[in-house]
Design a protein around this nucleic acid. Structure first.
Lengths: 341, 341
DNA sequence: GTCGTCAATGTAAGCGCTTACATTTGCTTT
DNA sequence: AAAGCAAATGTAAGCGCTTACATTGACGAC
């Protein structure tokens, strides 16, 4: 219950026989202080076990050394790896990470963004571009550096939307659809993510649709489904009932693909014998499930790393920061084959 | 480049024609303010788009509404779910989450704990009990409420170690070993986690060893291996070379088990025909891999939820907060069977 | 009508730092 | 040895809030 008041900067100053300003300088710009004093101060710091109060520092200096990240969920592998790398990179520069997860709800996300800004974050990591424009206005007004990860579109004006570090979801999806078509599939359906408020999910659907249109494939069913294995199983089952069974099913992500594979198998279908199924993301389970998933590899680690670097650059006001488009590529495994003839 | 100074509490006060204290009260203890003034203040807040500066608040009020969490990694499913639930629960009480991941390195963890404390976190979530005692002293001195998740031991003095919210790793492991023995296995090896600096990994090994000793099984090889599928594959391959092939392999976690299963299969072994393999944790892949894993179910969500509740209780200084032991149970799936006769 | 009480509000002193500006120190120049 | 100058240090004014304490005013008791 005894609360021995913690040493403050002033105590250190007194013990070291210098002014508070000098102590502060030792801590923040050590090179402005001559070695002798610096050592004396260091000794006082050690002796008292002094630790700076970051809130006071943030208040006085108007920078917090905290960056915020609002992600849809930390529960699944998609963002976990990127977030981990992001955090590690920031850590190197002594930034801490304030995370919030929005559960894909726009209103929750907005609240969290505002909260983080209130906390004085120096920068912000956001996922995807789709959100209420007034959030962007807000961020601009407050001059908060931010980067948007996971999405990339040529046509977007980057200066308006902070910096983009992502990949072209539409193009990537079109590429894998092309591959499926090249294998000879004609009846191709899609199990998609929920496109509402999610530009990545929407872009993947667009990629599918445009490629299908290119080949004049009609009636390519697209069913949207939440990010969940069991829901994917049900969605796939429902799809078979209402639209029949395609020879190939394109899934908007690996989790949906896993659900589809499991359901197909439990309904007696052979994958890829009776039906080919492709994923997107290339998370761990993609290579573990049997058959392993042919999928689009997304560079999760790079997304995290480059997001961090770009954000740091913006925070430090470095010139000529560019949007960054990362590459995806297809990983061919077992779940895609030519259709039975 | 125009930086219109953000409205501060004083501006709101002036516009509403009240004192700063009243505005502050409206924001923090609205019931102490009569409705008429409250409305007037609210109007001023809206009009100015005022947002409080949390750093100033934290400095003045000596509470930050931030809790910190230092976890070994956010990259894998083990902690992700718990962290997500933890965050959601805290969110309900308007706490934000400052996360750091230590990559299982004690020195990194210590640094991060100190950094979080410097940031004035109101509470701390730590994983496992094993760490330098001076960290506990430090936390006690600073009177930082903290809870330790994932571990639970009867014999530990809770008051010394903050609060425990976990399960008995040793007992849980002993239970699944018992099951394996009951199936008739006699040659049982273990693929363990790295026990150094990790009380959970150590406890799981202890559970294995004590149960094996109980049955007088000698030569039960225990190989430690990092948390990684590929490393597990190699470790399992190495184990076969040096110790031969057991009829059952107990793995300290599902990731190791998956690695072992994949390697076994690629070496032409049937699981569970030629070798039974068990996991621990019951993460998603456990039920997706083929054969699905018989494993110990760990209540990840509950760990997160109860950790949050316990921490909140400590922060609010509620009396009689107890350590909490959560239950685990075995999920029998396909990877465990009786040995060939 | 006066006083006491209590709820509502105001006053102002910090919270522990940073930093612009002022001052001192220790050199180099001449 | 005096002058001049840059580097090192000191002084003190905030940063935007909270809160202990003081003040005000409304109302009922006497």
């Amino acid at each position: 219950m005894s609360k021995p008041p913690l040493p403050k900067l002033e105590d250190v100053a007194r013990l070291a026989g210098v002014s508070t300003a000098t102590v502060s300088r030792c801590l923040n710009q050590p090179n402005q202080v001559v070695e002798a004093t610096r050592k004396r101060v260091q000794k006082a710091v050690d002796e008292l076990g002094y630790m700076p109060n970051f809130n006071a520092r943030s208040l006085a200096a108007k920078r917090s050394k905290i960056v915020g990240a609002v992600i849809p969920t930390m529960e699944n592998a998609i963002f976990a790896r990127a977030l981990q790398v992001f955090q590690e990179r920031l850590s190197e520069e002594d930034f801490d990470l304030l995370v919030a997860s929005s559960s894909y709800k726009p209103d929750v996300e907005e609240k969290q963004i505002r909260s983080l800004v209130s906390r004085g974050v120096d920068g912000l990591l956001l996922i995807g571009t789709k959100r209420d424009p007034k959030i962007y206005e807000f961020l601009q007004e407050r001059e908060i550096p931010f980067v948007i990860a996971w999405s990339f579109y040529d046509q977007l004006d980057a200066s308006e939307y902070g910096q983009l570090v992502g990949f072209d979801n539409e193009k990537a999806m079109a590429t894998i659809v092309q591959l499926v078509i090249d294998k000879g599939h004609q009846k191709v359906f899609m199990l998609a993510g929920i496109a509402d408020n999610n530009d990545r999910a929407a872009a993947r659907i667009a990629g599918f649709r445009s490629k299908m249109a290119e080949y004049n494939f009609k009636e390519a069913a697209v069913i949207e489904c939440e990010y969940d294995i069991d829901k994917a199983r049900k969605a796939f089952a429902g799809m078979r009932q209402s639209h029949g069974t395609p020879t190939a099913l394109i899934c908007a992500n690996d989790v949906l693909a896993v659900g589809a594979v499991l359901e197909a198998q439990s309904q007696g279908l052979d994958v890829p014998g009776d039906i080919s199924i492709t994923g997107f993301d290339d998370i761990e389970i993609a290579s573990i499930i049997s058959p392993s998933l042919t999928t689009v590899h997304v560079p999760h680690g790079s997304l995290g790393l480059h997001s961090a670097n770009t954000l740091l650059a913006k925070i430090h006001d470095e010139p000529s920061i560019k949007d960054m488009e990362l590459d995806t590529y297809i990983v061919e495994r077992q779940s895609l084959a030519a259709p039975k003839t």
